[in-house]
Write a protein that binds this DNA or RNA. Structure first.
Lengths: 199, 199
DNA sequence: CGTCTATTTGAATGTACTCAAAAGCGGTGG
DNA sequence: CCACCGCTTTTGAGTACATTCAAATAGACG
């Protein structure tokens, strides 16, 4: 029936298999409910203040999640690449105005659930609730680790730890966004890199 | 049958009712599996490097979760008071050595699940999986917000926002721990407070 | 009242920031 | 093919926010 996007299904299902066991009926239902959508580089998936309509799984491309403060400064909250989930979770689950913008850094292909679809699936597929519980748990553990590292490590060490942990992202994403993610200015990151290169 | 700790059950069950609906059989099972335990001020619930054996619900008292770095500096990750859940989540779910210490700041009374109990209950009570999915989701949203605020706000504004958000904790917890939580030195927090008091 | 811990104050220092300007790096069009 | 444009990165000088270290003061508790 479905001729397109067979490899997409495989990527997501293989990803889910790492965490939970689904019956083939469940997998079928899941895939029927997902919508696949392409975005161009620069396009917004969510804009601050709007409702975040989708929980998205990244099939290809990369995105940034960021907060724009009153003075127009952008603060990068996280990046997302292949096999990451991305949304403004607070906005998505409560259907309230989003705190963050989500914008594509490259052309992207995403698999998306709406909130009501996901709720429907939670009831029909108990293992899905388990799956997201685990995914979110991991995200929370990582976020806590990041908070501590922001406090105990110097900007230099945070940068080194970032390129060590996400070498792929470090290469695909402009430096000034990495600076923002690390909580420092682009100028200072440049100086850190110069210092590292000198030895 | 159970004569002790009746008010305990009520506190936890009322808390859970805010998020999910449980049958009375489920509630009974849940309560049978929970262990209630008292800790004295200063006692450790978890020590860095050990396995975190319990997910704990705070009935009374307060605790700090903190990381001790190689130079012996302590970095407060979070506080926990009545109606909060506390654990080293990474350690608890994977049964790996804990990253953090958890210590009582006051005498505490906790309701605790072991990992295997919780897994058993996840299977017997699907709504429990949903419950923790929601709880962890909220914790993750808050952690992300904290990361952004640490980047965009000055130490002064972070402190003001802390006492605004957690007035109770601000009063029960020593100032130098709040400084650590905010990622600043105790001396600097003292100066911030002096500055606020002057106007 | 004395001891122990927590908080405050001050001077010197350091890490990271601001502002301004220059240099690098693609792409695009003449 | 090179010139120009926009965008990213680099460099430098001056500054600000926060830290360190040391010492004084204030609170809590026996």
């Amino acid at each position: 029936m479905k001729n397109t996007s067979n490899s997409h299904e495989r990527l997501l299902l293989a990803y889910m298999d790492r965490y939970v066991t689904l019956t083939s009926e469940e997998k079928l239902l899941l895939m029927e409910r997902l919508r696949s959508r392409r975005y161009l580089k620069g396009q917004y998936v969510v804009q601050q203040g709007d409702i975040c309509l989708y929980e998205s799984f990244v099939l290809s491309g990369s995105l940034k999640v960021f907060y724009s403060d009153s003075s127009g400064e952008e603060h990068v909250v996280m990046f997302a690449v292949e096999e990451w989930w991305v949304s403004d979770m607070g906005s998505f689950v409560n259907q309230t105005p989003a705190d963050y913008n989500i914008q594509c850094l490259e052309n992207c292909e995403l698999l998306q659930f709406t909130r009501s679809t996901l709720e429907e699936l939670y009831h029909k597929i108990p293992a899905l609730e388990r799956f997201f519980r685990i995914i979110i748990q991991n995200a929370f553990v990582a976020a806590q680790k990041r908070i501590v590292n922001n406090h105990r490590l110097s900007a230099r060490d945070r940068y080194m730890s970032f390129i060590d942990q996400y070498p792929d992202i470090a290469q695909r994403v402009p430096q000034y966004l990495i600076a923002s993610y690390l909580g420092i200015t682009k100028e200072f990151l440049s100086k850190i890199r110069a210092q590292i290169n000198r030895g």
